[in-house]
């Protein structure tokens, strides 16, 4: 690891100010991606601004169907929140299958979303749930937030402080993990609203990151059943192709994971 300067912020304002003064700073949340990346010398921030001790970024609040998850909430906290499980168990189950127990004790929802790894699980949930990403300066809808591979709408120095969404009538997430890395080779989050509206978001498969699939959404809005997926065409053109799976294989996984998710929702 290259040399770096560590700062521990106790408030969002303090974190923003430290970052503004840093040459090439990075925010550090759980660090479950950033520290391993720095160990490999693939990242070399001049300064790290630790967000783990900022009280205003913690906590999960559920008011009726309205959910607010503080950005510094760990995957373990999301996975085991009884309040969240009562209105949206799908996001608890998603969090319970990120990484391994030790990673879940450190990694946070805000960190995962800010990193926007194309195989990460949370971006699919945010997009399917039509979540609002709350930052220190504005609110961004998930549809506008994820802009490409590891790219987001965040500006320099902007901090995700929380995410908000309305719990849907039904939701589920299913992923096909890579047998070695356990990252999603394809993961699908399905949501059905009380008014019958359906959103289907896919992670791990898109060559430009997480995406919605209008064909699957239309088919499931007309008929909320695993069988409705059978005749939907999933185009492999813009899907990832690598040593783990071809684009055609991933296109099929999109359908299979969607079927399983609808069956589980």
């Amino acid at each position: 690891m290259y040399d770096t300067n560590y700062h521990r912020a106790s408030s969002i304002d303090e974190a923003v100010n430290i970052m503004a003064a840093a040459a090439e700073g990075k925010y550090l949340s759980g660090g479950m991606t950033l520290i391993p990346t720095m160990k490999q010398r693939l990242a070399a921030p001049s300064d790290l601004v630790d967000l783990r001790h900022i009280a205003e970024m913690k906590g999960i609040a559920v008011d009726g169907r309205s959910v607010r998850i503080g950005a510094a909430s760990t995957h373990e906290e999301v996975a085991t929140s009884a309040a969240l499980a009562a209105v949206c168990p799908a996001i608890c189950r998603l969090a319970a299958h990120i990484g391994d127990p030790h990673v879940r004790h450190m990694g946070t929802i805000g960190g995962s979303i800010a990193n926007n790894d194309p195989a990460a699980d949370y971006p699919a949930a945010m997009l399917a749930l039509d979540a609002v990403i709350v930052t220190d300066r504005r609110e961004i809808s998930a549809g506008d937030f994820f802009t490409g591979l590891f790219e987001t709408a965040l500006e320099d120095g902007e901090i995700i402080t929380a995410v908000r969404f309305e719990a849907p009538a039904r939701a589920a997430y299913q992923k096909f993990p890579n047998p070695a890395s356990r990252y999603a080779m394809t993961g699908v989050f399905v949501v059905r609203r009380d008014d019958g509206g359906v959103r289907v978001a896919v992670t791990g498969a898109g060559s430009d990151g997480v995406f919605r699939h209008p064909g699957l959404e239309a088919a499931l809005a007309a008929n909320w059943s695993p069988d409705a997926v059978a005749n939907v065409m999933v185009d492999a053109t813009d899907l990832l192709s690598d040593l783990h799976a071809s684009a055609a294989y991933r296109a099929n996984l999109v359908k299979v994971m969607t079927k399983r998710a609808v069956a589980a929702a």
Binding site: Y6, R8, G31, I35, R52, V103, H105, M106
Partner: peptide
Amino acid sequence: DTTQCGACVVDMDGQSVKSCSILAVQ
């Protein structure tokens, strides 16, 4: 060297963590 093996697991404030993926200052 890749945060995968778990030989470094310790308990930090009541939870298991990988001590190879946390800075001492953290």
